[in-house]
Design a protein around this nucleic acid. Structure first.
Length: 599
RNA sequence: GGUUCGGUAGCUCAGUUGGAUUAGAGCAGCAGCCUUCUAAGCUGCGGGUCAAGGGUUCGAGCCCCUUCCGAAUCACCA
């Protein structure tokens, strides 16, 4: 039972003994005491006034008296400010709490068992016609972090990726490669496959627009020209041949997609993300048609004279939604239904989370209704983890204007910056090798990038200015990593000096306010993990880590661990430091951020 | 126009189910602190009509209503 729970139980008893009435638990409002007042926990008595029929001060006084007399081992003293009863908790209680946290290396995490709910998280979901950019980076980091958080909350997690590997956009790249590629390959050019394909996508667009321009110059109106340009016709023709399983087109398609996948794999590896199961739209898009036919048979959907199939969602306050085109081919929605079908065949999903940008809020609103109608039990409560766009100072990223921030470039820049940053500092570290230096630069650079993105509330659009490098000081990933490295250094030195943390901590030591506050904050990790899971909110974990570390740095500045002469105080401080390091490491792992032993 | 989501310091962002005279961090600016466990740190100063107005109550940045500003979306594109 935690200290909070003990106090709440005692306070409920107090209300009954003092005022003769049972009150529900939520009437006992316990919160952390503000730093400017004495005490650690505060009981807000306003909700109890109706029961006590006394003034706030008098009620708080009653309760304070009762609690100190009833549980002297728990509460050492109290003070009353208006309707706020500030309680000082006995040092021994805090030390005991610290001991529990320090012993449990997975403190705050709920174990996963065979019976745990199965949560599938879809994220990343790239197109195979261009390399990943900053928007994908946000998606991947959020998806990965969310997966870690769900797992820490005791869910079995299946991370999945749906690759959009078919459609007109891939045909454009293929066609451009055939026309202008001269047989280039990733090997012959030394270029990552995804970047190579991206170049051809751009090349297609360039030539296509030239053709359109030419047709317009010949007097054709622009809309017609866009449809009549020979290149786009060829691309459409290629798509038809693809759908007809033309061996030549399929072979080219496979070859080029494989180049892209090899490129993506490198980027995913650098970002530290992975998937348990990858789906390809080329394999799922036909499945959706069957489900639509099923829905048609059950009259969930209807067919128009031209043959197209629609869902009427006006009763749900939405529009009518197209599910199959008049030529019988499927649209985006149909594919998502097909993918859902396959997924449910593969896994007994209890909850489905889609990590997809907020531009698709409407799509998922509709998808949820459709999946529910079609009998997917998780359809109704599917979670669209909707995140905002990454904007540049002059607006959105636009590939046509060349303002896209490339994922690989960004990663390389971050690691480079971290390297430059650490150059002079790291030399001070004893016996540092080139490998370790490079590894630290990687960890710190990625830490800065990941934290920069994840600390922002996912729902919000966020700003990235390529002109300004991402910070390494202040509220940043490296700041947190640095604190971890400092603690590890203390722990190494303590070990070398033969100072160890005993199984049972001495409870006699008097704790400073800063130490108590740190233990309290450590204790809050479990609640922070729970909250992050309930809200699907990685940013709250980032904030938690920052605040914990900020507090530890103050402690670090004001107190010494190794030079403390009272052995009881020393081991408590050592245990406190070890616990902070452990919680920081676990917290950062929920963000997919590694922590270095030295930096 | 409908729907959804945002608006907090010069800039980037926190702010748990409503709680305490003074709404917090970081960056940028200024001023201090390294013979002592790593200065990627610590301390201090300046900086705000929490978009505006009304309401609910012991109490509102947070809840309700109206208005203003911004974003996304409302395709036989994905």
């Amino acid at each position: 039972m935690s200290i909070q729970e003990k106090i709440i139980a005692a306070a409920m008893g107090g209300v009954k003994d003092l005022y003769g009435a049972e009150v529900p638990e939520k009437m006992i409002q316990l919160q952390e005491t503000r730093p400017e007042f004495e005490g650690e926990l505060t009981l807000v008595v306003f909700p109890l006034l109706r029961t006590s029929k006394k003034a706030p001060e008098a009620t708080a006084q009653d309760m304070g008296q009762y609690l100190t007399e009833k549980c002297p081992e728990l509460i050492s003293k109290f003070n009353v400010v208006k309707g706020f009863l500030n309680l000082s908790i006995a040092s021994a209680q805090w030390i005991q709490m610290l001991e529990e946290i320090e012993h449990n290396h997975k403190y705050g995490f709920t174990p996963v068992t065979e019976q745990s709910p199965l949560v599938m998280i879809e994220y990343s979901s790239p197109n195979t016609n261009k390399p990943l950019h900053l928007g994908h980076v946000r998606n991947n980091l959020l998806g990965w972090s969310l997966a870690q958080i769900m797992e820490a909350n005791g869910n079995r997690v299946v991370k999945t990726n749906i690759v959009n590997d078919r459609g007109i956009h891939i045909c454009k790249s293929m066609l451009a490669w055939l026309k202008y590629g001269n047989g280039q390959t990733p090997e012959s050019t030394g270029k990552k496959g995804d970047h190579l394909i991206g170049d051809y996508y751009v090349a297609f667009d360039k030539h296509y627009r030239e053709q359109v321009k030419e047709l317009v110059a010949q007097g054709m109106d622009e809309e017609t020209a866009k449809q009549e340009a020979p290149l786009i016709k060829e691309a459409h023709d290629m798509l038809v041949r693809w759908e007809q399983n033309d061996p030549e087109v399929r072979a080219l398609w496979k070859k080029m997609n494989d180049w892209v996948y090899a490129g993506f794999d490198e980027t995913y590896k650098a970002l530290g993300v992975s998937f348990d199961k990858i789906y390809y739209e080329s394999e799922t898009y036909l499945e959706g048609k069957e489900k639509v036919e099923e829905g048609l048979a059950k009259s969930f959907f209807y067919r128009r004279e031209d043959g197209s199939v629609w869902a009427d969602l006006t009763k749900e306050g939405l529009d009518e939604k197209l599910l199959l085109r008049s030529d019988g081919t499927s649209v985006y929605m149909t594919q998502d239904i097909g993918t859902a079908k396959l997924r449910f065949q593969d896994f007994p999903i209890d909850k489905m989370i889609y990590v997809v940008g907020n531009e698709q809020n409407y799509h998922f609103q509709v998808l949820s209704i459709l999946l529910d109608k079609l009998g997917f039990k998780w359809g109704k409560d599917l979670v669209h983890f909707s995140y905002g766009m990454v904007e540049l100072p002059n607006g959105k990223m636009k590939s046509r204007e060349g303002t896209v921030v490339d994922a690989d470039d960004l990663v390389a820049t971050m690691v480079q910056d971290a390297r430059a940053m650490s150059e002079d500092k790291i030399k001070k570290l004893e016996g540092i090798t080139e490998e370790e230096t490079a590894e630290i630069a990687r960890i710190v650079g990625m830490g800065a990038l990941k934290y920069f993105i994840l600390k922002v509330d996912a729902r919000k659009n966020m700003l990235f200015n390529p002109e300004e490098s991402i910070d390494f000081n202040g509220n940043t990933g490296p700041f947190i990593q640095y604190t971890y490295a400092r603690i590890r250094s203390i722990l190494r030195k303590a070990e070398a000096q033969g100072i160890t943390i005993p199984e049972t901590l001495p409870t006699g030591a008097e704790l400073s306010a800063k130490e108590v506050s740190l233990i309290q904050h450590l204790h809050g990790f479990a609640a922070a993990v729970r909250q992050a899971g309930a809200d699907y909110n990685p940013a709250s974990i980032a904030t938690y880590c920052y605040e914990l570390v900020k507090e530890y740095n103050q402690f670090y500045h004001d107190f010494s661990v190794l030079r403390e002469e009272d052995p009881a105080k020393q081991v408590v401080r050592l245990a406190l430091s070890a616990a902070v390091a452990q919680v920081v490491k676990n917290g950062m792992s929920l963000l997919g951020i590694e922590v270095p032993e030295r930096m």
